[in-house]
Amino acid sequence: MDFQEYIKPELLILIPVLVAIGYGLKKAEWLQDKHIPVCLGVIGIVLSLLWVLVGSIPFETTNAILEAVFTAIVQGVLVAAAAVYANQLLKQEKKTE
């Protein structure tokens, strides 16, 4: 299965954005490496929520609001996971064993 089946095409741009943010967080002395994936998850959710809010979903009912929040959470987690995976692929590619 291809991850692109699950991530909305408009949000694929968030993967390299989150990879770049992850590199920036890696250089931050105040943040431990183990917290970077969680931070990327939160950032991914927030950016996905912004995408959903400016999207074409009318927020007239409670169901529409819940659907928007659910979509933002799922898409944010998926793009963050893809960004962490991409980072690990790049990291493993550099290793010589």
Rank of each mutant, 00 (worst) to 15 (best):
C39W: 14
E5N: 12
A86R: 06
K8Q: 15
P9T: 06
T71W: 15
N63S: 14
A86C: 06
L53F: 08
F70E: 09
P9F: 00
E97Y: 11
I15S: 01
P16H: 07
A81N: 06
V54Q: 14
L89A: 05
I43S: 01
V19W: 13
V46I: 14
A28M: 11
N87I: 07
F3H: 10
Y23I: 01
L12G: 01
E60K: 09
V19C: 06
Q88C: 08
P16Q: 00
V69I: 15
G22F: 02
L25C: 03
A72Y: 12
K95M: 04
L49Y: 15
L53N: 10
M1N: 10
Q88M: 06
H35K: 09
A28T: 03
K95T: 08
E97K: 05
A86P: 02
V69C: 02
N87R: 05
A72K: 12
E97A: 09
G44R: 02
V19F: 14
A64L: 11
V19H: 04
Q92I: 09
K91E: 07
G44K: 07
A68S: 15
T96G: 13
L12M: 09
G76D: 02
E5Q: 07
P58C: 03
E93K: 06
I15P: 03
A28C: 12
V46K: 01
V42Y: 01
I57E: 00
D33M: 11
F3G: 08
A72S: 09
K26H: 13
V17C: 13
H35T: 01
E29Y: 01
L53A: 13
F70H: 13
Q4K: 11
Q88A: 07
E10R: 13
K8E: 14
I45N: 00
F3L: 12
E10L: 00
E10C: 02
V54I: 15
V38Y: 10
Q75N: 10
V79E: 02
Q88P: 04
S56T: 14
Q92G: 05
V38E: 03
Y85R: 07
L14A: 04
A81W: 13
I45E: 04
L31S: 00
Y85D: 03
E67Q: 14
L25F: 02
N63M: 11
H35W: 13
Y6F: 14
V19K: 11
Y23A: 05
Y23T: 02
Q32E: 14
E60A: 10
L49N: 05
L25Q: 01
I45P: 00
V77A: 07
I57W: 01
